[in-house]
Simulated scan of single mutants.
Amino acid sequence: MLKYIVKNNVKEQSAKDYLKRHENISSSLWKKIKKQDEFFLNGQKIRPTRAIVKPGDIIEYRIVEQSNVLPVNLPLTICYEDDYLLIADKPAGILTHPLTFEAENTLANAVMYHYQQTNQQIGCHPLYRLDRNTSGLVVFAKVGQIQHLLGNNHQLLKRYYLALVHGKLTMPNGTIDEPIGRSLNSIILHRVDKNGKNAITHYRTIKTYDDYSLIELNLETGRTHQIRVHMSYLNHPLLGDDLYGGKRNLISRHALHAYKLQFIHPFTHKEITIESQLPLDMQKLL
């Protein structure tokens, strides 16, 4: 049951107008609220479309969701969880979300099993996907507002990565502002393309080694393979990333880990910072 206390600085208005204007509820979520008809005003059940609210009123509603993602008992590392979202640490080698040809061995399956075991009747809503061989933090929304506010918003949800790249960068710190598009004759490969979509990556060198460097990156955009394409464009591909010119002699997958998230919680308004430890296959190279 989600709960809101109507703010003191608003006039009397319909619950619909209040929730959409002041609590960032989307039109699609309001339709779900109406359909479920589990809406309460000051503890009394009422039709959502008839509710008129004033400052200090308590709004509550419940949405029960069904999901097509199968719950599967798989290892799951939860780094943060509350009534509104869950943050899990994805290991390299598994998908974030099921595909037609791989429906059961994914991070989403593990999350749905956790929901089932804790009696949470909610859907599966990852805010973004990491590549199969990228490890690190993934946010799952439990309520529509989280997805509406934070999904694909790199200004509100700041995502930081650690990567090991070949060589030493001429400019230790910098910004790569180069559009990315799909490579010709490939459904997988992407490349820097002046006709592609806007893509901006910031990076800074943390430490250099004989043949490679440890760098931190954060994104202003979220294009497919963005970090991998941009670092290859600088002639410093990720270790292990043979798709974009990296060598696999030191590590068997591309050396990329989504290690930190920072955001202001849309409901509690607290600043949240979550970090994930670097996996052993990358640690051993430091």
Rank of each mutant, 00 (worst) to 15 (best):
Lys3Tyr: 06
Met112Val: 15
Ser28Cys: 14
Arg21Thr: 14
Asp131Glu: 11
Thr77Leu: 05
Asn42Met: 06
Gly56Ala: 07
Ile227Gly: 01
Leu86Gln: 00
Asn133Val: 09
Asn119His: 15
Asn195Arg: 13
Asp211Pro: 02
Asn9Asp: 14
Ile206Ala: 02
Pro237Val: 06
Trp30Arg: 07
Glu178Met: 11
Lys34Tyr: 13
Gly181His: 09
Asn152Leu: 07
Gly151Trp: 02
Cys79Pro: 02
Gly123Leu: 02
Ala92Asp: 03
Ala108Pro: 06
Met112Ser: 13
Leu19Asn: 07
Leu169Glu: 04
Glu216Lys: 01
Leu261Arg: 00
Gln262Tyr: 07
Ile200Leu: 10
Lys284Asp: 07
Ile5Asp: 09
Asn185Tyr: 11
Gln277Phe: 09
His97Thr: 07
Gly196Phe: 08
Asn218Trp: 08
His148Lys: 10
Leu127Arg: 02
Lys34Gln: 15
Lys207Thr: 08
Ser67Ala: 12
Thr175Trp: 03
Trp30Ile: 06
Pro237Glu: 04
Cys79Val: 03
Tyr259Val: 00
Glu220Tyr: 10
Ala15Glu: 08
Gly167Ala: 03
Ile63Phe: 08
Tyr113Phe: 15
Val72Ser: 03
Gln121Trp: 12
Gln145Gly: 11
Leu164Val: 07
Lys32Ile: 14
Lys197Arg: 12
Leu184Phe: 09
Asp193Ala: 10
Ser213Ile: 00
Phe101Cys: 10
Asp281Cys: 03
Leu250Lys: 09
Pro279Trp: 02
Arg223Met: 12
Ile251Leu: 07
His166Asn: 12
Tyr128His: 15
Gln66His: 15
Leu86Thr: 03
Arg129Asp: 01
Leu219Val: 07
Arg132Pro: 09
Asp37Val: 09
His230Met: 06
Ile63Asp: 03
Tyr18Pro: 00
Cys124Glu: 03
Lys11Phe: 13
Ser26Gly: 09
Ser27Phe: 15
Leu184Ala: 14
Asn195Gln: 15
His236Cys: 04
Asp211Ser: 12
